[in-house]
Amino acid sequence: MKKNWTKYLYGTVIILVEGKHAERFLNYCLHNGIQLWDIKRKKDNELELNMFLEDALRIKTGLRKSGCTFKVLKKKGIPFLLKQIISRSGFVLGIGLFLVIVFLLSNMVWNIQITGAQPKTEHHLRKIIDELGIEKGKLLFMLPDVRSVQHLVTEKMDEVTWVGVTLEGTTFHFRVVEKELPEEVETLSPQNLVAKKEAVITKMYVEKGQPKVEVNQTVNEGDLLVSGYIGKDKNTKTVAAKGKVYGEVWYVTDTTVSLTSKYNTYTGERTTKHYVSLFGWRIPIWGFDSIEYKLYEPLIETKTFRFLKWELPVYYIQKDILEAEKVTRSYSEADAVSIAKEMAKEDLENKLDDDAEIKSGKILHHTLDNGKVNVSMHFTVIENIATEQPIVGGD
Protein backbone atom coordinates (compact mmCIF):
# COMPACT_ATOMS: atom_id res chain seq x y z
CA MET A 1 0.00 0.00 0.00
CA LYS A 2 1.34 3.44 -0.88
CA LYS A 3 2.06 5.85 1.94
CA ASN A 4 -0.44 8.48 2.98
CA TRP A 5 1.39 11.37 1.30
CA THR A 6 1.39 9.51 -2.02
CA LYS A 7 -2.35 8.95 -1.65
CA TYR A 8 -2.81 12.70 -1.36
CA LEU A 9 -0.44 13.29 -4.27
CA TYR A 10 -2.17 10.91 -6.70
CA GLY A 11 -5.71 11.52 -5.46
CA THR A 12 -8.19 9.04 -3.96
CA VAL A 13 -11.95 8.50 -4.08
CA ILE A 14 -14.44 6.87 -1.74
CA ILE A 15 -17.08 5.03 -3.74
CA LEU A 16 -20.23 3.09 -2.92
CA VAL A 17 -20.63 -0.14 -4.96
CA GLU A 18 -24.20 -1.46 -5.24
CA GLY A 19 -25.20 -4.93 -6.56
CA LYS A 20 -26.01 -8.52 -5.57
CA HIS A 21 -22.57 -9.68 -6.67
CA ALA A 22 -20.39 -6.99 -5.14
CA GLU A 23 -17.87 -9.64 -4.04
CA ARG A 24 -17.24 -10.47 -7.70
CA PHE A 25 -16.26 -6.86 -8.18
CA LEU A 26 -13.73 -7.17 -5.33
CA ASN A 27 -12.24 -10.27 -6.92
CA TYR A 28 -11.95 -8.49 -10.25
CA CYS A 29 -10.03 -5.63 -8.61
CA LEU A 30 -7.75 -8.08 -6.81
CA HIS A 31 -6.84 -9.96 -10.01
CA ASN A 32 -6.26 -6.75 -12.00
CA GLY A 33 -3.96 -4.97 -9.53
CA ILE A 34 -6.51 -2.38 -8.44
CA GLN A 35 -5.70 -1.37 -4.88
CA LEU A 36 -8.56 -1.08 -2.40
CA TRP A 37 -8.58 -0.23 1.30
CA ASP A 38 -10.94 0.64 4.16
CA ILE A 39 -13.64 -1.67 2.72
CA LYS A 40 -16.91 -1.48 4.68
CA ARG A 41 -20.24 -3.22 4.10
CA LYS A 42 -23.11 -0.78 4.43
CA LYS A 43 -25.99 -3.08 3.51
CA ASP A 44 -26.31 -6.56 2.07
CA ASN A 45 -25.85 -5.24 -1.45
CA GLU A 46 -23.61 -2.21 -0.74
CA LEU A 47 -19.85 -1.86 -0.18
CA GLU A 48 -17.99 1.36 0.66
CA LEU A 49 -14.33 1.38 -0.30
CA ASN A 50 -11.34 3.60 -1.07
CA MET A 51 -9.24 3.53 -4.23
CA PHE A 52 -6.82 5.66 -6.21
CA LEU A 53 -8.20 8.04 -8.78
CA GLU A 54 -6.19 6.43 -11.57
CA ASP A 55 -7.68 3.00 -10.66
CA ALA A 56 -11.23 4.40 -10.58
CA LEU A 57 -10.94 4.90 -14.34
CA ARG A 58 -10.35 1.13 -14.85
CA ILE A 59 -13.30 -0.38 -12.98
CA LYS A 60 -16.02 -0.12 -15.64
CA THR A 61 -15.32 -3.62 -16.95
CA GLY A 62 -15.43 -5.11 -13.44
CA LEU A 63 -18.71 -3.35 -12.67
CA ARG A 64 -20.29 -4.63 -15.90
CA LYS A 65 -19.17 -8.22 -15.30
CA SER A 66 -20.41 -8.21 -11.70
CA GLY A 67 -23.65 -6.40 -12.53
CA CYS A 68 -22.90 -3.60 -10.07
CA THR A 69 -23.13 0.17 -10.14
CA PHE A 70 -21.16 2.76 -8.18
CA LYS A 71 -21.48 6.22 -6.77
CA VAL A 72 -18.67 8.57 -5.76
CA LEU A 73 -19.06 9.66 -2.15
CA LYS A 74 -15.92 11.74 -1.62
CA LYS A 75 -12.87 12.98 -3.50
CA LYS A 76 -9.50 13.76 -1.90
CA GLY A 77 -6.05 14.76 -3.10
CA ILE A 78 -4.09 17.22 -5.20
CA PRO A 79 -5.75 16.45 -8.57
CA PHE A 80 -9.14 17.50 -7.22
CA LEU A 81 -7.64 20.51 -5.44
CA LEU A 82 -6.06 21.68 -8.70
CA LYS A 83 -9.36 21.24 -10.48
CA GLN A 84 -11.07 23.45 -7.89
CA ILE A 85 -8.33 26.06 -8.20
CA ILE A 86 -8.70 26.09 -11.99
CA SER A 87 -12.43 26.43 -11.71
CA ARG A 88 -11.88 29.41 -9.42
CA SER A 89 -8.90 30.79 -11.34
CA GLY A 90 -10.15 34.38 -11.19
CA PHE A 91 -10.30 34.35 -7.41
CA VAL A 92 -6.93 32.60 -7.06
CA LEU A 93 -5.35 34.94 -9.59
CA GLY A 94 -6.66 37.92 -7.64
CA ILE A 95 -5.19 36.60 -4.38
CA GLY A 96 -1.87 35.86 -6.09
CA LEU A 97 -1.76 39.30 -7.66
CA PHE A 98 -2.58 40.91 -4.31
CA LEU A 99 0.24 39.02 -2.58
CA VAL A 100 2.69 39.98 -5.33
CA ILE A 101 1.74 43.66 -5.03
CA VAL A 102 2.07 43.58 -1.22
CA PHE A 103 5.43 41.81 -1.58
CA LEU A 104 6.74 44.43 -4.00
CA LEU A 105 5.47 47.31 -1.86
CA SER A 106 7.13 45.73 1.19
CA ASN A 107 10.47 45.70 -0.65
CA MET A 108 10.29 49.25 -1.96
CA VAL A 109 11.77 52.51 -0.61
CA TRP A 110 8.92 54.57 0.81
CA ASN A 111 10.76 57.24 2.75
CA ILE A 112 14.21 58.80 3.20
CA GLN A 113 14.87 60.57 6.50
CA ILE A 114 17.90 62.75 7.30
CA THR A 115 18.62 63.96 10.82
CA GLY A 116 21.42 66.07 12.30
CA ALA A 117 22.29 67.97 9.10
CA GLN A 118 22.13 71.68 8.33
CA PRO A 119 20.09 72.61 5.21
CA LYS A 120 23.20 73.00 3.05
CA THR A 121 24.63 69.67 4.19
CA GLU A 122 21.26 67.97 3.75
CA HIS A 123 21.00 69.27 0.17
CA HIS A 124 24.46 67.89 -0.61
CA LEU A 125 23.58 64.55 1.01
CA ARG A 126 20.34 64.21 -0.95
CA LYS A 127 22.24 64.87 -4.16
CA ILE A 128 24.65 62.03 -3.35
CA ILE A 129 21.74 59.76 -2.39
CA ASP A 130 20.12 60.44 -5.78
CA GLU A 131 23.41 59.59 -7.53
CA LEU A 132 23.41 56.23 -5.73
CA GLY A 133 19.90 55.55 -7.07
CA ILE A 134 18.21 55.64 -3.66
CA GLU A 135 14.82 57.20 -4.25
CA LYS A 136 11.20 56.59 -3.35
CA GLY A 137 9.66 53.74 -5.31
CA LYS A 138 12.97 51.95 -5.96
CA LEU A 139 13.09 48.23 -5.09
CA LEU A 140 15.41 47.56 -2.15
CA PHE A 141 17.12 44.54 -3.70
CA MET A 142 18.20 46.72 -6.65
CA LEU A 143 20.13 49.10 -4.36
CA PRO A 144 23.57 48.82 -2.73
CA ASP A 145 23.61 47.31 0.74
CA VAL A 146 23.52 49.61 3.77
CA ARG A 147 27.22 49.23 4.57
CA SER A 148 28.24 50.21 1.03
CA VAL A 149 25.88 53.21 1.09
CA GLN A 150 27.37 54.43 4.38
CA HIS A 151 30.93 54.08 3.07
CA LEU A 152 30.20 55.87 -0.23
CA VAL A 153 28.29 58.73 1.41
CA THR A 154 30.93 59.36 4.09
CA GLU A 155 33.69 59.25 1.48
CA LYS A 156 32.02 61.90 -0.70
CA MET A 157 31.16 64.36 2.08
CA ASP A 158 34.11 66.28 3.50
CA GLU A 159 31.94 68.48 5.68
CA VAL A 160 30.77 65.64 7.93
CA THR A 161 32.52 63.58 10.55
CA TRP A 162 30.24 60.56 10.28
CA VAL A 163 27.08 59.45 8.50
CA GLY A 164 25.12 56.55 9.96
CA VAL A 165 22.86 54.66 7.55
CA THR A 166 20.16 52.23 8.64
CA LEU A 167 17.27 50.60 6.83
CA GLU A 168 14.19 50.27 9.03
CA GLY A 169 11.42 48.54 7.14
CA THR A 170 11.02 50.55 3.95
CA THR A 171 12.67 53.73 5.26
CA PHE A 172 16.31 54.77 4.87
CA HIS A 173 17.57 56.73 7.89
CA PHE A 174 20.65 58.94 7.52
CA ARG A 175 22.06 60.28 10.79
CA VAL A 176 24.66 63.00 10.19
CA VAL A 177 27.38 64.27 12.52
CA GLU A 178 28.80 67.46 11.03
CA LYS A 179 32.30 68.72 11.55
CA GLU A 180 32.34 71.54 14.05
CA LEU A 181 35.30 73.70 14.86
CA PRO A 182 35.38 73.88 18.62
CA GLU A 183 35.18 77.37 20.03
CA GLU A 184 38.43 78.43 21.53
CA VAL A 185 38.04 78.66 25.25
CA GLU A 186 40.31 81.12 26.94
CA THR A 187 42.59 79.24 29.33
CA LEU A 188 42.30 80.85 32.72
CA SER A 189 45.07 78.89 34.41
CA PRO A 190 48.52 80.48 34.14
CA GLN A 191 50.94 78.52 31.98
CA ASN A 192 54.29 78.56 30.18
CA LEU A 193 55.12 77.16 26.78
CA VAL A 194 58.04 74.75 26.82
CA ALA A 195 59.81 72.70 24.14
CA LYS A 196 58.55 69.17 23.70
CA LYS A 197 61.66 68.08 21.76
CA GLU A 198 65.13 69.20 20.75
CA ALA A 199 65.11 71.69 17.85
CA VAL A 200 66.54 74.86 16.30
CA ILE A 201 64.03 77.73 16.44
CA THR A 202 62.97 78.95 12.98
CA LYS A 203 60.01 81.26 13.69
CA MET A 204 57.65 82.26 16.50
CA TYR A 205 54.09 83.59 16.82
CA VAL A 206 53.48 84.68 20.41
CA GLU A 207 49.98 85.95 21.31
CA LYS A 208 50.42 86.10 25.09
CA GLY A 209 53.42 85.76 27.32
CA GLN A 210 57.08 86.71 27.30
CA PRO A 211 59.33 85.05 24.62
CA LYS A 212 62.44 83.48 26.15
CA VAL A 213 64.15 82.21 22.99
CA GLU A 214 65.22 83.65 19.66
CA VAL A 215 65.27 82.45 16.06
CA ASN A 216 68.25 80.14 15.25
CA GLN A 217 68.61 79.25 18.95
CA THR A 218 68.98 75.56 19.81
CA VAL A 219 66.67 74.29 22.56
CA ASN A 220 66.34 70.97 24.33
CA GLU A 221 63.25 69.14 25.52
CA GLY A 222 61.68 70.97 28.47
CA ASP A 223 63.39 74.34 27.81
CA LEU A 224 61.23 77.42 28.44
CA LEU A 225 60.03 79.01 25.19
CA VAL A 226 57.38 81.52 26.27
CA SER A 227 56.97 82.56 29.90
CA GLY A 228 53.61 83.13 31.52
CA TYR A 229 55.15 85.84 33.73
CA ILE A 230 54.83 89.34 32.33
CA GLY A 231 55.66 92.75 33.77
CA LYS A 232 58.48 93.80 36.09
CA ASP A 233 59.12 93.75 39.79
CA LYS A 234 55.92 94.39 41.76
CA ASN A 235 53.91 94.65 38.54
CA THR A 236 54.66 91.09 37.55
CA LYS A 237 51.65 88.89 36.92
CA THR A 238 50.95 85.49 35.42
CA VAL A 239 48.98 84.79 32.26
CA ALA A 240 48.24 81.80 30.12
CA ALA A 241 51.07 81.91 27.57
CA LYS A 242 49.73 81.34 24.08
CA GLY A 243 51.37 80.99 20.68
CA LYS A 244 53.32 78.73 18.35
CA VAL A 245 57.06 78.20 18.23
CA TYR A 246 58.35 76.44 15.16
CA GLY A 247 61.64 74.61 15.17
CA GLU A 248 63.79 72.50 12.91
CA VAL A 249 63.51 68.90 14.15
CA TRP A 250 65.36 65.80 12.95
CA TYR A 251 63.97 62.30 12.44
CA VAL A 252 65.70 59.05 11.48
CA THR A 253 63.56 56.28 9.97
CA ASP A 254 64.35 52.74 8.84
CA THR A 255 62.48 51.15 5.92
CA THR A 256 62.74 47.74 4.26
CA VAL A 257 61.70 46.86 0.69
CA SER A 258 61.88 43.39 -0.87
CA LEU A 259 63.46 43.16 -4.31
CA THR A 260 60.86 40.55 -5.28
CA SER A 261 57.22 40.59 -4.20
CA LYS A 262 54.28 38.36 -5.09
CA TYR A 263 50.64 39.38 -4.98
CA ASN A 264 47.27 38.65 -6.57
CA THR A 265 45.62 41.05 -8.95
CA TYR A 266 42.32 41.00 -10.85
CA THR A 267 42.30 40.46 -14.61
CA GLY A 268 38.95 42.20 -15.13
CA GLU A 269 37.14 39.00 -16.11
CA ARG A 270 34.20 37.97 -13.95
CA THR A 271 31.31 35.53 -13.79
CA THR A 272 28.11 36.44 -11.97
CA LYS A 273 25.75 33.89 -10.46
CA HIS A 274 22.33 34.61 -8.95
CA TYR A 275 20.58 32.54 -6.30
CA VAL A 276 17.47 32.53 -4.17
CA SER A 277 18.04 31.16 -0.69
CA LEU A 278 14.90 29.54 0.70
CA PHE A 279 15.03 28.23 4.29
CA GLY A 280 18.79 27.77 3.91
CA TRP A 281 18.58 26.04 0.54
CA ARG A 282 20.40 27.93 -2.20
CA ILE A 283 18.58 27.64 -5.53
CA PRO A 284 20.41 28.90 -8.66
CA ILE A 285 18.24 31.10 -10.89
CA TRP A 286 20.79 32.54 -13.32
CA GLY A 287 24.41 32.03 -14.27
CA PHE A 288 24.81 28.27 -14.63
CA ASP A 289 28.22 28.32 -16.36
CA SER A 290 30.97 26.40 -14.62
CA ILE A 291 33.91 28.37 -13.24
CA GLU A 292 36.93 27.93 -15.47
CA TYR A 293 39.27 30.34 -13.70
CA LYS A 294 42.36 28.77 -12.16
CA LEU A 295 42.54 31.49 -9.52
CA TYR A 296 39.59 33.58 -8.42
CA GLU A 297 38.02 35.44 -5.54
CA PRO A 298 34.27 35.31 -4.78
CA LEU A 299 32.34 38.41 -3.70
CA ILE A 300 28.93 37.62 -2.21
CA GLU A 301 26.12 40.14 -1.70
CA THR A 302 22.98 39.06 0.15
CA LYS A 303 19.68 40.93 0.26
CA THR A 304 16.64 40.10 2.38
CA PHE A 305 13.09 39.99 1.11
CA ARG A 306 10.31 41.41 3.29
CA PHE A 307 6.57 41.01 3.53
CA LEU A 308 4.93 43.96 5.28
CA LYS A 309 7.01 44.43 8.47
CA TRP A 310 8.42 40.89 8.56
CA GLU A 311 11.66 39.65 7.12
CA LEU A 312 11.09 36.49 5.11
CA PRO A 313 13.41 33.45 5.28
CA VAL A 314 14.06 34.17 1.60
CA TYR A 315 17.20 35.90 0.34
CA TYR A 316 18.53 37.07 -2.98
CA ILE A 317 22.21 36.26 -3.39
CA GLN A 318 24.51 37.66 -6.04
CA LYS A 319 27.88 35.96 -6.29
CA ASP A 320 30.58 37.63 -8.39
CA ILE A 321 33.54 35.43 -9.21
CA LEU A 322 36.50 37.66 -10.09
CA GLU A 323 39.36 36.08 -12.01
CA ALA A 324 42.73 36.72 -10.41
CA GLU A 325 46.31 36.01 -11.33
CA LYS A 326 49.53 35.83 -9.42
CA VAL A 327 51.99 38.58 -10.28
CA THR A 328 55.64 38.67 -9.36
CA ARG A 329 57.19 42.12 -9.28
CA SER A 330 60.95 42.59 -9.25
CA TYR A 331 62.86 45.76 -8.46
CA SER A 332 66.41 46.75 -9.10
CA GLU A 333 68.38 47.86 -6.07
CA ALA A 334 68.11 51.50 -7.18
CA ASP A 335 64.32 51.21 -7.64
CA ALA A 336 63.95 49.61 -4.22
CA VAL A 337 65.90 52.46 -2.61
CA SER A 338 63.69 55.03 -4.36
CA ILE A 339 60.51 53.24 -3.19
CA ALA A 340 61.87 53.03 0.36
CA LYS A 341 62.44 56.80 0.35
CA GLU A 342 58.82 57.46 -0.65
CA MET A 343 57.51 54.96 1.92
CA ALA A 344 59.56 56.54 4.69
CA LYS A 345 58.36 60.04 3.77
CA GLU A 346 54.71 58.97 3.61
CA ASP A 347 54.97 57.16 6.95
CA LEU A 348 56.50 60.23 8.60
CA GLU A 349 53.84 62.56 7.13
CA ASN A 350 51.12 60.41 8.69
CA LYS A 351 52.70 60.88 12.12
CA LEU A 352 53.21 64.65 11.93
CA ASP A 353 50.71 67.43 12.70
CA ASP A 354 48.86 69.06 9.82
CA ASP A 355 50.92 72.26 9.98
CA ALA A 356 54.27 70.44 10.02
CA GLU A 357 56.47 70.57 6.90
CA ILE A 358 59.17 68.15 5.75
CA LYS A 359 62.02 70.44 4.71
CA SER A 360 64.41 67.82 3.40
CA GLY A 361 65.32 64.16 3.51
CA LYS A 362 68.45 62.22 2.67
CA ILE A 363 69.68 58.65 2.84
CA LEU A 364 72.12 57.96 5.63
CA HIS A 365 72.95 54.48 4.36
CA HIS A 366 71.37 51.42 2.79
CA THR A 367 72.23 47.71 2.78
CA LEU A 368 71.21 44.68 0.70
CA ASP A 369 70.47 41.59 2.76
CA ASN A 370 68.63 38.36 1.75
CA GLY A 371 66.85 39.97 -1.18
CA LYS A 372 65.77 43.02 0.85
CA VAL A 373 66.98 46.60 0.76
CA ASN A 374 67.23 48.28 4.18
CA VAL A 375 67.27 52.07 4.00
CA SER A 376 67.97 54.50 6.84
CA MET A 377 66.63 58.02 6.15
CA HIS A 378 67.31 61.37 7.85
CA PHE A 379 64.54 63.98 7.64
CA THR A 380 64.54 67.64 8.60
CA VAL A 381 61.08 68.82 9.66
CA ILE A 382 59.71 72.25 10.57
CA GLU A 383 56.99 71.86 13.22
CA ASN A 384 55.45 73.49 16.27
CA ILE A 385 57.50 72.34 19.25
CA ALA A 386 55.61 74.29 21.95
CA THR A 387 53.58 72.52 24.59
CA GLU A 388 51.74 73.85 27.64
CA GLN A 389 53.18 73.71 31.16
CA PRO A 390 51.00 74.93 34.07
CA ILE A 391 52.56 77.45 36.43
CA VAL A 392 52.23 75.90 39.87
CA GLY A 393 50.97 78.42 42.39
CA GLY A 394 50.37 81.02 39.68
CA ASP A 395 47.93 83.74 40.58
Results as ranks from 00 to 15, higher is better:
residue 209 G to F: 04
residue 209 G to W: 03
residue 209 G to Q: 01
residue 211 P to R: 10
residue 211 P to S: 08
residue 211 P to T: 13
residue 212 K to E: 11
residue 212 K to H: 05
residue 214 E to S: 15
residue 214 E to D: 14
residue 214 E to H: 14
residue 216 N to A: 10
residue 216 N to L: 13
residue 217 Q to H: 04
residue 218 T to H: 11
residue 218 T to D: 03
residue 219 V to Y: 02
residue 219 V to K: 03
residue 220 N to D: 06
residue 221 E to Y: 06
residue 221 E to I: 14
residue 221 E to N: 15
residue 221 E to D: 07
residue 223 D to H: 12
residue 225 L to S: 07
residue 225 L to H: 12
residue 226 V to P: 00
residue 226 V to K: 02
residue 226 V to Q: 00
residue 226 V to C: 06
residue 226 V to L: 00
residue 228 G to L: 04
residue 228 G to R: 00
residue 228 G to P: 01
residue 228 G to A: 03
residue 229 Y to Q: 08
residue 229 Y to R: 06
residue 229 Y to G: 09
residue 229 Y to M: 11
residue 230 I to D: 02
residue 231 G to M: 03
residue 231 G to W: 08
residue 231 G to T: 14
residue 232 K to S: 12
residue 233 D to Q: 13
residue 233 D to R: 13
residue 233 D to V: 04
residue 234 K to T: 13
residue 235 N to A: 08
residue 235 N to F: 04
residue 237 K to N: 05
residue 237 K to E: 13
residue 238 T to R: 06
residue 239 V to D: 03
residue 239 V to P: 08
residue 240 A to F: 09
residue 240 A to W: 07
residue 240 A to D: 08
residue 241 A to N: 04
residue 242 K to H: 07
residue 242 K to Y: 07
residue 243 G to M: 12
residue 243 G to T: 15
residue 243 G to S: 10
residue 244 K to H: 13
residue 244 K to D: 07
residue 245 V to F: 09
residue 245 V to C: 01
residue 246 Y to F: 12
residue 246 Y to K: 05
residue 246 Y to W: 09
residue 247 G to R: 05
residue 247 G to N: 02
residue 247 G to S: 05
residue 248 E to G: 09
residue 248 E to Q: 15
residue 248 E to A: 13
residue 250 W to M: 05
residue 250 W to V: 15
residue 250 W to P: 07
residue 250 W to S: 11
residue 252 V to G: 00
residue 253 T to Q: 05
residue 253 T to N: 12
residue 254 D to K: 14
residue 255 T to P: 01
residue 255 T to Q: 07
residue 256 T to V: 09
residue 256 T to H: 01
residue 256 T to P: 01
residue 256 T to R: 12
residue 257 V to D: 03
residue 258 S to I: 06
residue 259 L to T: 14
residue 259 L to I: 13
residue 259 L to F: 03
residue 259 L to H: 09
residue 260 T to V: 14
residue 260 T to D: 10
residue 260 T to Q: 10
residue 262 K to H: 04
residue 263 Y to P: 08
residue 263 Y to A: 10
residue 264 N to G: 00
residue 264 N to A: 05
